[in-house]
């Protein structure tokens, strides 16, 4: 918990500043919107965090969001598939992509960066191909399905704010992910192999399988995210739907304490990281006329955050080392 203290404090600080600078920030409408956007980013961030924890990277997240986000309305409205069939198809494709990445990375020993970079290009290209670059959407139909993303759940005793439905998905995903990572042997295997794959293998861990599982979790959550994104927005433009989302997701994971060296990260941290990014965006939108500098701000915050984190970590390491030395030289 100590690890996410800094970032949580930063999130609180940004919230307070924004609330002071803009009255609109604390309005029920804005908070709802923020919660929904955070939930959507949180879902894909948890996915990519699993890959990062095993020491890999997935750059294809945004394109999987695009593929599913365009594919689902396309199947439903242009191909007239039934809803269960269309949902099953996008789920299968998402999981399949994860297996595809994982197998190439582990069995052919090709760098995750390269494999998923190719994925980034391929899946968007495929989406643009079958939609012929045309915007796809649900029109006025499928309102029932769209409730999954647009629905509001009223909270007892709270007025003026209702919980957006994606938050429920996020909470369930986060809870399952936290249990998986912290309580199951597979979670421990992932943390171990992220630190030292060779030692993990020598300890009898099927490291290849665990890496594949991590990529499947990532692509599956990207697919879920893509579905919720398009249900939320109603339409998707294949050219830019989900553009750069992989970078937002990686940024959220890193802000939340995942090390790109692997083996480190907490689910709560990732959620805070995702929230921080969305609040920063919100702040820029509410308090300035320059939404186009968004990337510069987020980039700067991320950089400062990682540097601060590294410095704190180094200091803690030195103190720990000094203590350990003392303990060992003392006769026991």
């Amino acid at each position: 918990m100590k690890k996410i203290l800094g970032i949580t404090a930063l999130l609180a600080l940004v919230c307070i500043i924004t609330a002071i600078l803009s009255e609109g920030f604390l309005s029920g409408y804005n908070i709802e919107n923020l919660a929904r956007r955070t939930a959507l980013l949180g879902i894909i961030s948890i996915g990519v965090a699993f890959v990062i924890i095993t020491g890999g990277i997935d750059l294809s997240v945004g394109s999987v969001v695009c593929l599913v986000g365009c594919g689902l309305p396309w199947l439903l409205t242009k191909q007239n598939w039934s809803m269960p069939a269309a949902l099953a198809a996008v789920a299968l494709v998402s999981v399949g992509i994860g297996i595809f990445h994982g197998v190439i990375i582990t069995k052919l020993r090709i760098a995750p960066f390269v494999v998923t970079l190719c994925g980034l290009m391929m899946y968007r290209g495929i989406a643009r191909g079958f939609t012929q670059d045309q915007t796809v959407g649900f029109g006025g139909e499928f309102t029932g399905l769209r409730t999954l993303a647009t629905g509001q759940i009223s909270i007892p005793f709270v007025d003026g704010f209702t919980l957006p439905a994606p938050c429920v998905f996020l909470l369930v995903a986060a809870l399952l992910a936290a249990i998986f990572l912290n309580r199951t042997i597979w979670g421990r295997y992932m943390l171990a192999l992220g630190r030292n794959e060779e030692a993990a293998r020598y300890s009898g861990i099927n490291t290849d399988r665990m890496v594949i599982v991590a990529y499947v979790i990532c692509s599956a959550l990207s697919g879920l995210g893509g579905m919720l994104y398009v249900l939320d927005s109603n339409t998707a433009q294949p050219v830019d739907f989900g553009n750069f989302y992989e970078l937002y997701a990686i940024a959220a994971a890193v802000l939340g304490g995942c090390s790109l060296r692997g083996g480190e990260g907490t689910i709560v941290g990732i959620l805070v990281g995702a929230a921080l990014i969305m609040v920063l965006r919100n702040m820029i939108m509410l308090t300035t006329n320059y939404t186009n500098i968004e990337f510069a701000i987020i980039g700067a915050v991320l950089l400062i955050g990682v540097i601060a984190d590294e410095l704190v970590k180094r200091y803690a390491m030195r103190r720990r080392a000094a203590r350990a030395l003392l303990a060992e030289t003392k006769p026991s």
């Binding site: 042997i185 421990r188 295997y189 943390l191 171990a192 630190r195 030292n196 060779e198 030692a199 993990a200 020598y202 300890s203 009898g204 861990i205 083996g263």
Partner: peptide, 20 residues
């Protein structure tokens, strides 16, 4: 490189092979 996972705790290292 192959024996211990340096960044993990004594407990987590000792139990690693027995988890299964």
């Amino acid at each position: 490189r192959q024996g211990v996972i340096l960044e993990m705790t004594v407990r987590d290292n000792v139990s690693l092979a027995s988890l299964r």
